[in-house]
């Protein structure tokens, strides 16, 4: 299956590509040229990277759960 084969694939490809582009944006929470203090004095981009990674990880798990309910993902069995 490819990234744009059907509505399900298109939706998830768009979600992950959006998250991919977002982390590369030169905005303060990902790329900061002046120091903005956050939790325990950490630069804000460290906290921004953390939340972005956590949200993307959750999205990966949701994608996995939804994909495993679809026939085409069961083609080679589900023994893990």
């Amino acid at each position: 299956m490819g990234m744009w084969d059907n509505a399900f694939e298109k939706k998830w490809s768009a979600v992950f590509l959006a998250m991919y582009v977002i982390v590369m944006l030169p905005v303060e929470c990902f790329y900061a040229t002046t120091y903005a203090a956050s939790w325990k004095g950490l630069p804000i981009f460290m906290v921004g990277w953390f939340w972005h990674t956590l949200i993307t990880m959750i999205l990966i798990v949701v994608f996995y759960v939804q994909a495993m309910k679809r026939e085409e993902y069961l083609e080679f069995g589900t023994e893990g």
Binding site: M57, I60, F63, Y64, A67, M68, L74, G80
Partner: peptide, 18 residues
Amino acid sequence: KNYKVMFKAVILGTLGMW
């Protein structure tokens, strides 16, 4: 082995990298 393995590997491997 299959797609389920792929997803589980992605989750586990990404956590390890993180």
